Amino acid sequence: LQLFIKTLTGKTFTVEMEPSDTIENLKAKIQDKEGIPPDQQRLIFAGKQLEDGRTLSDYNIQKESTLHLVL
């Protein structure tokens, strides 16, 4: 599923993930694309901070959802 990642600077980029992927996987993918170390990434969806060990489906993140990346 394609997700939109929006940064505080207003930049938006996309990543391609599976619902079974963990937040950790997502942070690694963001590191590949943007060079931001996972330990500096905080991801927010629907007002909640996402925890590394959980999956996208745990948070009911669907295709074309927008996640906010806070550094």
Rank of each mutant, 00 (worst) to 15 (best):
L1Q: 05
L1E: 04
L1I: 14
L1A: 06
Q2V: 14
Q2A: 11
Q2F: 11
Q2I: 08
Q2M: 10
L3M: 04
L3W: 01
L3E: 00
F4A: 06
F4V: 11
F4H: 11
F4M: 13
F4R: 12
I5Q: 00
I5K: 00
I5V: 10
I5P: 00
I5L: 03
K6D: 05
K6A: 15
K6Y: 08
T7A: 06
T7P: 12
T7M: 09
T7E: 06
T7S: 07
L8M: 13
L8R: 11
L8Q: 08
L8D: 14
L8I: 09
L8W: 14
T9Q: 07
T9L: 10
T9Y: 11
T9A: 09
G10H: 08
G10P: 02
G10E: 05
G10W: 04
G10N: 08
K11T: 09
K11D: 09
K11F: 10
K11P: 07
T12K: 09
T12Y: 13
T12Q: 11
T12G: 07
T12I: 09
T12N: 11
F13W: 07
F13D: 01
F13C: 02
F13I: 07
F13M: 06
F13Y: 07
T14D: 06
T14S: 15
T14N: 15
T14Y: 12
T14C: 04
T14P: 12
V15R: 00
V15I: 13
V15M: 07
E16W: 12
E16Y: 15
E16M: 11
E16A: 13
E16F: 15
E16N: 13
E16H: 12
M17D: 01
M17V: 09
M17Q: 03
M17F: 09
M17S: 11
M17K: 01
M17E: 01
E18S: 08
E18D: 13
E18R: 15
E18P: 05
P19W: 08
P19L: 08
P19A: 11
P19R: 09
S20N: 15
S20Y: 15
S20I: 07
S20Q: 08
D21N: 08
D21V: 03
D21I: 03
D21H: 12
D21Q: 13
D21A: 10
T22E: 03
T22D: 03
T22G: 04
T22Y: 10
T22V: 06
T22S: 10
T22N: 05
I23F: 03
I23H: 01
I23E: 00
I23S: 02
E24G: 12
E24T: 12
E24C: 05
N25K: 13
N25W: 12
N25A: 07
N25Y: 12
N25D: 11
N25M: 15
L26T: 03
L26Q: 00
L26M: 05
L26A: 02
L26E: 00
K27Y: 03
K27R: 08
K27D: 00
K27H: 02
A28H: 13
A28E: 08
A28W: 15
A28T: 12
K29P: 00
K29D: 03
K29C: 04
I30V: 06
I30G: 00
I30P: 00
I30N: 00
I30C: 02
Q31H: 14
Q31W: 09
Q31N: 14
Q31V: 04
Q31S: 08
Q31D: 06
D32E: 13
D32F: 10
D32M: 15
K33D: 04
K33S: 14
K33V: 12
K33E: 15
E34K: 10
E34G: 08
E34I: 11
E34V: 14
G35W: 04
G35T: 03
G35Y: 04
I36F: 14
I36E: 02
I36Q: 03
I36K: 02
P37L: 08
P37Q: 06
P37V: 06
P37C: 04
P37M: 06
P37S: 14
P37R: 15
P38D: 04
P38K: 12
P38G: 07
P38S: 13
P38Y: 10
Q40P: 02
Q40N: 12
Q41H: 03
Q41R: 01
Q41V: 08
Q41N: 02
Q41L: 05
R42M: 11
R42Y: 13
L43D: 00
L43Q: 00
L43H: 01
L43C: 01
I44H: 13
I44M: 12
I44N: 05
I44G: 03
I44Y: 13
F45H: 12
F45T: 02
F45I: 04
F45G: 02
F45S: 03
F45A: 03
A46S: 11
A46L: 10
A46C: 04
A46M: 10
G47N: 15
G47H: 07
G47F: 04
G47I: 02
G47Y: 05
G47C: 04
K48G: 08
K48Q: 12
K48Y: 07
Q49H: 14
Q49L: 12
Q49F: 10
Q49N: 07
Q49T: 09
Q49W: 07
L50I: 05
L50D: 00
L50F: 02
L50V: 05
L50S: 01
L50N: 00
L50G: 01
E51H: 09
E51N: 06
E51F: 07
E51W: 04
E51Q: 11
E51C: 04
E51P: 02
D52H: 08
D52S: 07
D52C: 03
D52Q: 05
D52P: 12
D52E: 14
G53M: 14
G53K: 13
G53I: 07
G53D: 07
G53H: 09
G53E: 07
G53A: 09
R54G: 09
R54K: 14
R54M: 11
R54C: 04
R54I: 06
R54Q: 13
R54A: 07
T55W: 04
T55P: 06
L56A: 04
L56I: 10
L56E: 00
L56F: 07
S57N: 15
S57E: 10
S57R: 15
S57L: 12
S57T: 12
S57A: 12
D58L: 03
D58V: 04
D58K: 03
D58T: 05
D58C: 02
Y59C: 03
Y59S: 03
Y59G: 01
Y59N: 02
Y59F: 03
Y59I: 03
N60R: 07
N60E: 10
N60S: 14
N60Y: 12
N60I: 04
I61P: 03
I61M: 12
I61D: 02
I61E: 02
I61F: 06
I61H: 02
I61S: 02
I61N: 02
I61Y: 02
Q62E: 11
Q62K: 15
Q62F: 10
Q62W: 10
Q62G: 14
Q62A: 14
K63R: 14
K63L: 07
K63Y: 12
K63F: 11
E64N: 14
E64Y: 10
E64W: 15
E64M: 09
E64V: 07
E64A: 13
S65G: 06
S65V: 10
S65W: 04
T66Q: 06
T66K: 05
T66I: 09
T66W: 14
T66S: 05
T66R: 05
L67C: 01
L67W: 02
L67A: 03
L67Y: 03
H68L: 14
L69H: 01
L69F: 03
L69A: 02
L69D: 00
V70W: 14
V70C: 04
V70L: 13
L71S: 14
L71W: 08
L71A: 07
L71V: 09
